[in-house]
Computed example of a mutant assay.
Amino acid sequence: MIDGRRTVDDALFTETPDGPALRGSRCADCGAHTFPAQSGCPRCPGTSMVEVPLSRTGTLWTWTVQGFTPKPPYTGEAAYEPYGVGYVELPGQLLVEARLVETDPARLEIGMPVELVLTPFRDDEFGWPVHTFAFVGVEA
């Protein structure tokens, strides 16, 4: 649980004074960041990875709207609703692929400031919501 909510994978998140953040890692040798957290560096042969909370804010680097039902096995029982997906640049860290809360293309813009939120993804077998991460636009 993160911030009192069930998540798709608690290993993806950490709690900070400002709210939930993505749990990443930084190479102590070359400074490269990764998400999710990893034990080895993808940029250099370093294995001195330090777990770090990633920035909760960034800018939308690029985006699209998933407007059609994904092919099986990714279809669910609920009616399909289009959703936004994009790459978010976390300043000084990395690009992370994520869902976007906004689905209206007229309201999405490359370079817009965004902030991490937890959003319902599905219900568990008992009907309780399970959350994933997404980014929502914020005022500059």
Rank of each mutant, 00 (worst) to 15 (best):
D10N: 10
R26P: 04
F13S: 02
P20S: 02
L12N: 04
G31E: 00
D10W: 10
P53V: 02
A28T: 05
V52M: 02
A11T: 13
W63C: 07
G84Y: 04
P17S: 10
R43S: 15
G24E: 02
V88N: 00
G76E: 01
S48F: 12
K71V: 14
Y80T: 04
R6A: 14
G67Q: 13
T57E: 09
P73I: 09
T69M: 14
G19H: 05
A32T: 11
P73W: 07
Y83T: 09
G76C: 00
L54S: 00
W61N: 11
P42N: 06
A21S: 02
L22Q: 03
P72K: 07
R23G: 09
T57Y: 10
T57D: 09
W61P: 10
Q38A: 13
P20V: 03
R56H: 04
C30P: 00
T7L: 06
G46L: 00
R56D: 01
V65E: 06
A79K: 12
P72M: 01
P36C: 08
S39N: 15
G84F: 06
T59E: 10
S48E: 14
R56V: 00
Y87E: 10
A32Y: 09
V52N: 02
G31M: 02
A32E: 14
L60K: 03
Q66M: 15
Y83R: 07
P70C: 08
Y87T: 11
T14A: 12
V65F: 04
R43Q: 15
E77L: 11
L12Q: 09
V8L: 13
A32K: 08
T16H: 07
S39E: 15
E77T: 12
P72C: 02
A37R: 08
F35I: 07
D9W: 10
T64M: 12
Y87R: 11
V8A: 12
P36Y: 09
T59N: 08
G58D: 00
S48T: 14
G40I: 15
S48R: 14
P53R: 06
G24A: 01
Q66D: 13
D10C: 11
T34V: 08
S55P: 03
A37P: 10
H33N: 02
Y87A: 12
S55D: 07
L12R: 09
G31R: 01
L12V: 07
S25H: 05
P42G: 04
R43C: 14
T64G: 12
D10K: 08
G4W: 02
R26Q: 08
R56C: 00
